[in-house]
Design a protein around this nucleic acid. Sequence first.
DNA 1: ATGAAAGCGCTAACAG
DNA 2: CTGTTAGCGCTTTCAT
Lengths: 305, 305
Amino acid sequence: MIFAKVAGVSSATVSRVINGSNLVKPVTAERVRRVIADLKFVPYGSATTLKYGRSSTYGLIIPDITNPFFPEFIRSFESILVDHNQDMLMATTDFHPSKMQQTIYRMLVRKVDGIALLAAEIETEPIEAVIHHRVPLVTMDRLLLAPGLSDVAIDYASGMNQAVQHLKQLRHRKIGYIGGSDGPTISDHRVRAFVNAMRSADLEVDPAFIRVGNYRITGGESAMTEVLALRHRPTALLTANDLTAIGALRVIRKNGLSVPKDFSIVGFDDIDLSDIVYPAHYDPLTLARTCRGVLQSAGIVGKES
Amino acid sequence: MIFAKVAGVSSATVSRVINGSNLVKPVTAERVRRVIADLKFVPYGSATTLKYGRSSTYGLIIPDITNPFFPEFIRSFESILVDHNQDMLMATTDFHPSKMQQTIYRMLVRKVDGIALLAAEIETEPIEAVIHHRVPLVTMDRLLLAPGLSDVAIDYASGMNQAVQHLKQLRHRKIGYIGGSDGPTISDHRVRAFVNAMRSADLEVDPAFIRVGNYRITGGESAMTEVLALRHRPTALLTANDLTAIGALRVIRKNGLSVPKDFSIVGFDDIDLSDIVYPAHYDPLTLARTCRGVLQSAGIVGKES
DNA sequence: ATGAAAGCGCTAACAG
DNA sequence: CTGTTAGCGCTTTCAT
C-alpha cells in the first residue's frame, strides 16, 4: 500500500484506524487520520466485498418509476439504507420479464446483500436464482413464501372495505372497479378484496363494472372509456392504483363530465393528488413500515428500532 | 476455483468462456457453459472491480425524487446504462449538503465509473474529491467547468422566451416569476433568463412579481400566497419548475380563483400534468439528449449512436 | 502496539 | 488451445 508508507505505518494499521479499532496508539491513529485527509484516501470497497462476500449494497427492483407510488417508496427505502451506511442499486423492469431477469443477474454479480422486488412479474426462474445464491429476497404482494423469500403484503381487505364504506356513505350504490393487468397476478387479490368488500356492505356487484387496467394511466383511460360506453353506468369507481385513477379522471374530463359531480373515483396508494378522495391506505407511515419490513427481512434492520 | 474443477478446466478457461474469448475449443466452451448453467454460477463482480478499478457502475445523485422531473430523468438514464450493461447507484440529497458529501464518499468507495450530479447544492469540497479521484463528473446547470468536470446546461434563454412569448400572445402583460431557492445557485440563471425574455418581449418587469420558491410544492404555495396579497397582481406566472407551478395552482384554487380564468401558470419541465399550459421545454427527446450528454461526458456512450 | 502474510475471485501474461 | 501464476486492496491471525 503506497499510501500506508507515507504515513509510516503498515496497511494493517491503516485498516485498523479506519475501522475504529482500539488497538492503535492514539498518536499513531491521529497521524494516520491526518495523512488520510491530506491524501484524500478512500478505501476500495471492492476489496472488502471480495474478501467477505458482502457488498453493503441492496438492490431495489421496481416496475415503473413513473408511477408516483414508487418514488415515495424509494425515498423511504433509500433513507433507511443510508442510515445504515448501505447503498442502493436501483433498476426498473418496465414490466418486461426479460429485463427483470437481467437485472437480477446483474445484482447477483454485484453481490448485493439483499433484494427488494416490487415488480409483480411472476417469473419464478430469476427468483429461484436469488434464493439459490442465498441472497435475502423480499417481494411485495406476491403472497408466496419460501425459505429465503419473504413477502410484504398489503391488507387489501381493509383498504377496500374502507373505500367501499366511504362511497356507500356518499350514497353510492353502483360501484365499479378498474383493476391491474389481466392474468394470474397480484391484481386478483385486489379484485377479490373489492368483491368481498361490496358483499360486506350489502351492495351488488355488477360484472360489467369490473374492468381491467394496467396499473398505468393508459389502462385507466381505456377502462374508463369502456365504462362510459355502458348503457347503465356506475356512479363510483375504485381503481387498483392511483395512476389508473388519473387515467379514468382524464377520460371523464375529456367527455365533459366531472368528478365528483358525475363520478366518484377512489385511488389506492395515497399519492399526492388533490381533488380526489383517498382513503389513506399507503400513507407515509404505512409506507415506512413497509420499507422497514422489507429491510428487516433482508436482515439489515433489527426488529425494534 | 471450486467450480472450475467440476467442469474439469481451469478458472482461466472459465473466465475466457464467460468473456467470449475465441481462444477456447468450441467443445470445451460448450461443456463449461453447461456446467455454468447447471450450477447457476455467477461471477464475482468485485474481483474484477478490484483488479481493474472499474465497477461498471454509475452514480446518480438527485436532490428530491419526489419532484416528478427526476423519475423521468432516472428512467432515461437507467435505460441507457442498462443498454451498456452498467448499473446505477442512486442517491437522494434532500437538499442537505452533508448528505451529498456522504453520498459522494460512498460512491467513491464503490469505485463508480462516473457520477451524474443533478443536485444544485454548490459544495465544492466533495466535488473536488471526485475530481481528485479522477471519476468523471457531470453536473447539470452549474455552468462551471473544469478538467474532469462537465456540465450539461439547459437553454433557459430559449425556454423563457418561448414561455413569455406564449403568454404575450395570450395578451398577458403583467407577468411574474416564482424562482428556486434563494442564494447563489442555479435559480439565478433562470431569473436572469426571465428578465431578459421579458425585455425582448418589450414587457415591463415588476420587481414585486418576482418571488422566491424552493423547487417544491411548498415554495410555490408560499410565493403564490405572497402574490395574492399584492395590491396589484400579475395575470400570469412563470415558475422555476413544475412543482412550484403545482404549489401556486393549489393556492389559487384554495382562494376560489381559477386557472386559466384568473391566472395563467407556466411550469418548466414538461411534467405530465393536464390543465396547464406548458411549453415543451424538457420534452422526452430533450430529456434523453440530456442523459446522453451526461453519459457521453462520462465516457460510456459514444458521440454518435 | 504494530507488522508480515495469506487469501477472497478474476484475468492477462506467459508457458507450454 | 489450455493451465499456471501474479496481483488488485483489504482485514485478520499470528508473530513480535
